[in-house]
């Protein structure tokens, strides 16, 4: 067991590695976000027997860049009756929690450099999952503030809906995760991935020991609540365009609108990464562990594809249905799951 690289035993290397990891993760997430928009339009296009973007570059590959340039040169409008400070803060407050959360996701096994073990993870927190839950709950500020400060009825309704929705689904998401760390007996994402390596329950050789097999109900609940929490279809009530124009971001233009757009996809990446780490074994996957990065990216892309597929398939649910499902179906199911897991853990 080699010693972990830390600030005290090799400061220059630690700072250098930290900076490198931050830059790599940031660039990768930004790239995924940019090309997720292209993939979404392409996939939905083909599912509806259209072609999707075709004009910019080969099969529209330059479309995200063209969109970015276009939004960058749009006029930046602040409504005359808007509440200026919250109006400016809101887009940042929605994007920052998404990017911060990715810091605890491990994307590979430790690498030994200069005799010290360097984890392939920006930081391993003792309270990893709690950190994820804490920052997931902060995303709601951006939406609420955007809705309120725009001083428009559509924005306000979107913001109010988002708050109610996120508060109710956050509870169910937290409860499903509790079942996972009752089994893992740790909150650190790094150790949760370590526990999920090896054959299933130590005995079935052809399946990995992922929590999706041990906790199938929790996995389904997590995906549903995750979709609701990031306001994706079929739960995109806050920006239901048939009722609310564009919801909480109706009054935004130019790069501020682009930030909301990016935040939506960044949140999708985060939820996919957390689901992959908690339930699908993280970087421990079908490919050998030295390719951990490819493993986790593969799982993230699979979950994101599933989200896009859902958007092409399902209609939007009604608001009262959404609330009823959150409180009367998902939370009881999550509680039953926790209770059953507790009994099984005590008995074995």
């Amino acid at each position: 067991m080699t010693e972990m690289l830390s600030l005290s035993n090799n400061m220059p290397l630690f700072l250098g590695m930290m900076l490198l990891k931050l830059v790599v993760v940031f660039v990768v997430v930004i790239l995924i976000v940019a090309y997720a928009t292209w993939c979404e339009r392409k996939i939905i296009g083909h599912m509806q027997t259209r072609l999707g973007p075709m004009r910019t570059g080969w099969h529209g590959l330059l479309q995200p860049i063209a969109d970015g340039v276009k939004l960058f040169f749009k006029e930046d409008i602040i409504p005359a009756k808007a509440n200026v400070i919250p109006f400016l803060l809101a887009p940042m407050m929605i994007l920052v929690p998404a990017f911060i959360t990715i810091a605890v996701v491990p994307f590979g096994p430790d690498v030994t450099i200069a005799g010290l073990a360097v984890p392939q993870q920006i930081t391993d927190l003792n309270i990893g999952i709690l950190y994820v839950l804490a920052f997931a709950g902060l995303g709601v500020y951006g939406i609420v503030l955007a809705g309120w400060s725009s001083n428009s009825k559509y924005s306000l309704l979107g913001g109010v809906r988002a708050t109610a929705q996120m508060i109710s689904y956050e509870l169910a998401a937290g409860l499903t995760i509790i079942a996972v760390f009752m089994l893992s007996e740790t909150l650190s994402l790094r150790e949760i991935v370590a526990i999920q390596s090896g054959p299933l329950w130590g005995s079935i050789p052809f399946l990995p020991n992922w929590y999706v097999f041990t906790q199938p109900l929790a996995f389904c609940l997590f995906i549903i609540t995750g979709l609701a929490e990031i306001n994706r279809t079929p739960f995109d009530m806050p920006e239901a365009e048939s009722e609310l124009v564009s919801g909480f971001c109706t009054e935004y233009s130019s790069m501020k609108y682009a930030l909301f757009f990016m935040a939506e996809y960044a949140n999708m990446v985060v939820i996919a990464a957390i689901a992959a780490t908690l339930f699908l074994g993280g970087w421990y996957g079908p490919l050998p562990s030295s390719l951990g990065f490819a493993n986790i990216l593969m799982k993230i892309f699979a979950i994101m594809f599933f989200c896009i597929w859902l958007r092409a398939t399902l209609p939007r649910v009604r608001y009262d249905q959404l609330m009823r499902m959150g409180w009367k179906v998902l939370i009881p199911l999550a509680l039953i799951n926790v209770a059953v897991t507790a009994i099984v853990v005590v008995l074995t």
Binding site: L130, L138, L145
Partner: peptide, 26 residues
């Protein structure tokens, strides 16, 4: 005390303040 820190953010910033903000707005 990392647990306290996470709970501080989750409960106070993530839940209670959102409700207060909600009430102020409505």
């Amino acid at each position: 005390a990392p647990f306290m820190a996470a709970v501080q953010i989750m409960v106070y910033a993530g839940a209670i303040m959102v409700l207060i903000l909600f009430v102020i707005m409505l």
